[in-house]
């Protein structure tokens, strides 16, 4: 018994070592950099000035705090709206005979599509020189394409939100369809026979039944959209700027001293996401204990 166990541990050690080195080594090195430790340019100090700079210095504070606000807004709004759209979409089509086809379509087309492609698609359709603007001016809804509302590269991150909704709604949709399918309709039929009308069946039966899955999926989507770079880089404006873009610009800065700020900002983003995830697990654990 003991020998077997040892053998397993020993045989797992090399790959585990590699994973640990890459992961924790990477984090550790990044953390050191954020503290200002950069032997490559002859900096050996260790302090929190990069963190301070990013959050409170006159130069970056405004950018950081508006960026954080935009980040929270974009992530919450896109996660929430994607979940809502997916929920109503799934409820609307689950009983139709083409539900499976739609699922497969989304599965094979939308999910594997890179976010970058979706972002370009959003520009193509929703920008002021895009398809919708041209169409609207052609049929006389607006005077010229320039009168089209600014939905892409706008300061409220609407284009970014749109792109995330497009992508993540598909993710939610797939999850919801499988949950609804496995639940069947018995609970709803029962509720109906107990006198629940359509709204009450949604509110007191469907929603609580899908909520745990919807909530978990939301965390994944939220964490992803909070830390992702490419969509806000393509569809965002210079100010306000989402935090991952801001971090990336620090890295692009020819001044290598800015690396520390970039790393500090990346770690701040990671910590915020982690706090949210931990909060979520605490919430679900508390609920499980209560049950």
């Amino acid at each position: 018994m003991g020998g077997e166990r040892l053998k397993i541990i020993l045989s797992l050690t090399p790959p585990l070592l590699i994973i640990f080195t890459l992961f924790f080594g990477g984090i550790f090195y990044g953390f050191l950099q954020s503290l200002g430790y950069q032997p490559a340019i002859g900096k050996y100090e260790i302090n929190f000035s990069a963190y301070y700079n990013v959050m409170f210095s006159e130069r970056y504070a405004k950018l950081f705090w508006t960026g954080l606000g935009l980040n929270l807004w974009v992530s919450f709004a896109s996660t929430f709206l994607a979940a809502v759209f997916a929920l109503f979409g799934a409820l609307a089509i689950r009983k139709t005979f083409f539900a499976k086809t739609i699922c497969n379509f989304i599965y094979s087309l939308n999910l594997p599509m890179p976010h970058l492609v979706v972002a370009v698609g959003i520009i193509f359709v929703f920008s002021q020189s895009g398809l919708l603007a041209r169409l609207a001016s052609q049929i006389g809804l607006i005077g010229s394409p320039g009168d089209f509302p600014v939905l892409v590269k706008d300061k409220y991150g609407l284009g970014i939100i749109l792109a995330y909704i497009w992508k993540e709604a598909a993710f939610f949709f797939i999850i919801l369809m499988s949950v609804l399918q496995s639940l069947g309709e018995n609970f709803e039929e029962l509720a109906q026979s107990l006198g629940a009308n359509r709204w009450q069946r949604f509110r007191y039966v469907i929603l609580p039944l899908v909520m745990p899955n919807l909530f978990s999926a939301s965390i994944i989507v939220f964490a992803f959209s909070f830390g992702a770079y490419e969509v806000p880089a393509l569809l965002g404006v210079i100010y306000p700027q989402m935090l991952p873009v801001m971090a990336f610009e620090f890295f692009l800065n020819p001044d290598l001293n800015a690396r520390s700020e970039g790393m500090a900002l990346s770690i701040i983003i990671a910590i915020i996401v982690m706090i949210l995830v931990v909060f979520y697990f605490w919430l679900t654990q508390a609920k499980i204990r209560k049950d």
């Binding site: 018995n186 609970f187 039929e189 029962l190 109906q192 026979s193 107990l194 006198g195 629940a196 009308n197």
Partner: peptide
């Protein structure tokens, strides 16, 4: 259904 006053108990309790 919800107005019939006919209540059904399903096999698997639900």
């Amino acid at each position: 259904t919800e107005k019939r006053g006919v209540v059904m108990v399903f096999q698997n309790y639900l």
